[in-house]
């Protein structure tokens, strides 16, 4: 009786242990977690720690920094370059390839850029999200649509 109970207990322990290992392994694996910064200044202060890892930075699109390269023979997808900043001194250049630019993306917009920080100091955006003014009381969904 006892011995069988112990067998069950050990198996249950193994199951719980396996779940714990999965959680720890996934949390420490790069690309599975995203570091989120409220301002580019905050991010830049620690940026060297985050080369080649997923980050999410919240900032404003700097006036006059948007450069769009339309589809051509060389590139099959449109390219969008802009600068993300909270002041003119603390800015991060952003490079985005793709068409899912949110509806409300424009100069001065409050955006969240999720992507990989490269060793050249450019944020390779995977996803652009636009924050709505608080009046709407809705934050963006992963679509980037607001």
């Amino acid at each position: 009786m006892r011995a069988r109970n112990i067998k069950v207990m050990i198996s249950l322990g193994l199951v719980i242990g396996a779940i714990a290992v999965l959680v720890i392994a996934s949390t420490t694996r790069s690309g599975y977690t995203t570091h989120y910064y409220r301002t580019p200044s905050e991010f830049l202060a620690r940026s060297h720690d985050y080369v080649n890892s997923m980050v999410r930075v919240n900032g404003k699109v700097v006036q006059g920094s948007i450069r769009r390269t339309p589809v051509s023979a060389q590139n099959s997808l449109p390219v969008l370059d802009f600068v993300l900043g909270d002041s003119l001194n603390n800015t991060v250049p952003v490079h985005y390839v793709g068409t899912t630019v949110p509806d409300a993306f424009k100069e001065g917009a409050d955006v969240v850029v999720e992507g990989i920080y490269t060793s050249e100091g450019v944020l390779e955006a995977k996803q652009l999200l636009v924050k709505c003014p608080s009046k709407y009381e809705a934050a963006p969904k992963p679509s980037g649509n607001v």
Binding site: S26, T27, Y32, T33, T34, H35, Y36, Y37, R56
Partner: peptide, 10 residues
């Protein structure tokens, strides 16, 4: 001190 979120992949 840093907000780290886990994604869909996690």
């Amino acid at each position: 001190g840093v907000q780290v979120s886990v994604g869909v992949m996690w």
